[in-house]
């Protein structure tokens, strides 16, 4: 895996952003930025080059699914890999995310190995 890429972590809970940052740092990723909802994440995307988005689903202002759809509809961002990390994993949620173009999906609660496996698949 190329660990020099810049990863945007989007979650309204600081706890989850911290856990994901710890895991990503252990995996060797150092270039990490954060946003606490989809709206803030979009602002980050418009201001700097992001190579991978890891996003929660259920957030205020703009959900992860809305962010995913906006990213995929954007000429400048549509190719950015998008990993959804969420407690929302009922069948309909998964179908909606796949239809919207999610790159992969991790269900909370998760292990560090689950994150690592999904990243390897996305970044290979």
């Amino acid at each position: 895996m190329d660990t020099s890429i810049k990863i945007l972590i989007v979650d309204d809970f600081a706890t989850m952003r911290r856990i994901l940052k710890n895991i990503l740092k252990q995996l060797g990723f150092k270039n990490l930025v954060e946003a606490d909802d989809g709206t803030t994440a979009w602002d980050v995307l418009e201001g700097q080059t992001i190579d991978l988005i890891i996003s929660d689903w259920n957030m205020p202002k703009m959900t992860g699914l809305e962010l995913l759809k906006k990213v995929r509809a954007s000429d400048s961002h549509k190719r950015i890999p998008f990993l959804m990390v969420t407690a929302e994993a009922q069948k309909q949620n998964v179908i909606e995310a796949v239809q919207a173009g999610v790159s992969n999906y991790v269900v909370k609660p998760f292990t560090a190995e689950a994150i690592s496996d999904k990243l390897e698949k996305i970044l290979k």
Partner: peptide
Amino acid sequence: MFGETMNSLNSEIADAVGELTNMISGQ
């Protein structure tokens, strides 16, 4: 969860309780 010692009930603990509740609900 954080890999570091937490000593008091603060906003970080409150945030974690919210996320744990969220995950329990989702599962």
